[in-house]
Amino acid sequence: MKTVQTIKSHGGQVRVIEHDSETLGVPMQFAAYLPPQAEKGPVPCLWYLSGLTCTWANVMEKGEITRAAAGHGFAIVAPDTSPRGEGVPDDEGYDLGQGAGFYLTATQAPWSKHYRMDSYITDELQTLVTDSFPVAEARQGIFGHSMGGHGALTLHLKNPDLYKTCSAFAPISAPSQCPWGEKAFTAYLGSDRARWADYDAAILVGRQPSQAHILIDQGTDDQFLAEQLLHGIFEDAARTAGQAYTLRRQPGYDHSYYFISTFMDDHVRHHRQELFA
């Protein structure tokens, strides 16, 4: 593990880290923000998962996340969205391959050799972060945007003792039933839809609702809302399962980081209230 870059922000530090991933079989980068409060001891930690085509840089540079994290005393970990590099399978479409890992473990060739983003984040990177930085292991939450919102919901529902809190910006809420998810799941997991259920939040919440109160923000002018995001399906499943959640429909906002940055402080505050309840 080596620090590629250190950047001061709101009294703390963004550290860009590179390491050789055993899980993915390639070198990976992620960013960690340590707020000024970390100088005095361990701080709670939020994991932010980005969307299609993004890297750790999008939220750190455009999401106003360091301001919110410093204000509420959180460390932030922002992984990449997929394995990358020479020899890593890719696709000419932006919604499959490098930049589009969908936070799952692929079972189909050629993807299965490297595409194991869920295990990478919850196991390998989790250990690396908690061993290397002053974070409070018992106080961790997860959130994300779009494909990363899908990842946050599914990783939380499958690991509620690790990620005790969860929120999402415009998540892909029912990927088994939208074009983005159908394309990715067919490629990564095969045509048997029964295998897709482990990575579909609308199905998982019906099987295993968590004790957390999930916050979701969605812009009403999001160009992907009707075809790709399908919040109504998740809402119905969460209500039936007894999952506590709040879905806020924000008038006039789109799918961009202008939307995310506007409500970033609300989300970090939500996690703090939940973690310290």
Rank of each mutant, 00 (worst) to 15 (best):
T53V: 10
C54W: 03
L52M: 13
G71W: 08
A78V: 15
P89H: 11
E61D: 14
P79H: 00
F74M: 11
E61F: 12
T53L: 07
A70N: 01
R84H: 11
Q98H: 03
H72A: 15
P83V: 02
G87Q: 07
M60A: 13
V77A: 06
I65T: 09
A69Q: 08
P79S: 09
A70F: 04
V59H: 09
R67F: 05
P89Q: 13
L96M: 08
E86T: 13
E92M: 11
A69M: 11
N58K: 10
V88I: 11
V88N: 02
A75Y: 03
I76E: 00
H72N: 12
P79D: 09
P79L: 02
V59Q: 08
P83G: 05
S82G: 07
L96T: 03
G97L: 08
Y94Q: 11
F74P: 00
I65V: 15
E64D: 14
E92G: 13
G85I: 09
E92D: 15
T53W: 02
G63V: 03
A68M: 10
T81H: 02
A75W: 06
D95G: 08
E92P: 01
E92N: 12
C54E: 15
D80F: 01
V88Y: 01
A69Y: 07
E64S: 14
V88S: 06
A68E: 10
G99I: 03
A70H: 01
D91N: 15
K62A: 14
T81Y: 01
A69C: 07
E61H: 13
P89F: 08
G87F: 08
I65Y: 02
M60R: 09
S82D: 10
P89M: 12
S82N: 06
E64I: 03
P79A: 12
T53H: 04
G71E: 13
P83A: 07
Q98G: 05
G93Q: 14
N58H: 10
D95C: 11
R84T: 13
G63R: 01
G93V: 14
K62E: 14
T66L: 04
A57I: 08
Y94A: 15
S82I: 09
K62L: 15
A68W: 02
F74H: 04
T81K: 01
Y94M: 12
G73C: 04
G93K: 14
T55K: 12
G87H: 06
T81M: 10
D91L: 03
Q98K: 09
G85T: 05
V59T: 11
G85W: 09
Y94I: 13
N58Q: 11
G87T: 07
P83M: 04
G63Q: 06
C54P: 00
V77G: 02
G73W: 00
E64C: 12
V88M: 07
I76V: 13
G63A: 09
D91E: 14
E92L: 11
V77D: 09
G63Y: 00
N58R: 10
E92H: 08
V88A: 09
